[in-house]
Amino acid sequence: MRHIALISKNELLQVFRSWPLALIIFALPFMLIFIISMTSSVNIMIYEEGYVETKSTMQSTHSGAEPTIASTTNENTLSINEINVEQVTALSPLQYYTASTLVTCILFQGLGAAISIIDERKDKTFTRLRMLPMKTSTILTGKLVGNALICLIQSLWIIMISTLLFQVDWGQHIEILTITCLLTICISMLIALHVTFLFQSVKVIYSFFYTFIIVMTFISGGMIKDLSNQLEFIGSYTVHHWAFKSLLQGMLDYHILEAMYHIIPLMGTAMMLYIIALIGYRKVDFYK
């Protein structure tokens, strides 16, 4: 435990003492949200239709039908609080894109973690740590915990800034937001670990993450709202999609049980990645 704490603390220091990294972590999401808020007037046009839909659904729920999950399949534009039917809220484009930004940032922090592991292996400090009385898995865990903390700090920062400066409403259900963020962070770190098991080149890792995350963000609708049906179908099986939709549900004050529809796949993915990591770890030659 002590070893993990020491290594993760070192990881935090490494990031926060280097101003370009700290800048990326703190300023970039802020800038993204700012740009979105600037362009959101355009987006509102796109949303008008959704808003109309919202109204019509609201009427239909009012006219006697039991509110079910099925009636909210179009969650990202529809906005009905299942618990309190009276209180109807719509998602603003700012909310929509801020949630997407949050998920993307968390997934991107995996890149940070992967680079940090590879850099450390290159700098020989990893070898030195392996000479100390602790297991290699402890070192890796320490590094991942450190990066997960950085990721957590960044998520809190995004949530704080978006709430205070841009009045983004994250909803009443803190638990959905918390669980979703934590699970996404775990997944992001585990992906990072797998990537370092597979590749040793920083360049390859960069390309992998950029391609992986941008494609995932795109097909899950985090960039452009209306996608073709096929893309939308594939997109509904991505980490980004589950995390994103779960956050939106949180914003729309869904009950946590409904958000489970997206949280459970996230849990499953995290578990699966963890198990594969345990198997993969034995096959990796750390002496290179």
């Binding site: 700098d123 030195r128 100390l132």
Partner: peptide, 30 residues
């Protein structure tokens, strides 16, 4: 491993830490 101290052939130090912090970090890990 608890009984030994190794000076590796290659320099293995953390650039973001000061000299004292580097030594402290490794000593704490022991």
């Amino acid at each position: 491993k608890k009984l030994i101290g190794v000076v590796p052939q290659h320099i293995a130090l953390y650039d973001h830490l000061s000299a004292e912090e580097n030594v402290t970090f490794f000593a704490k890990l022991y």
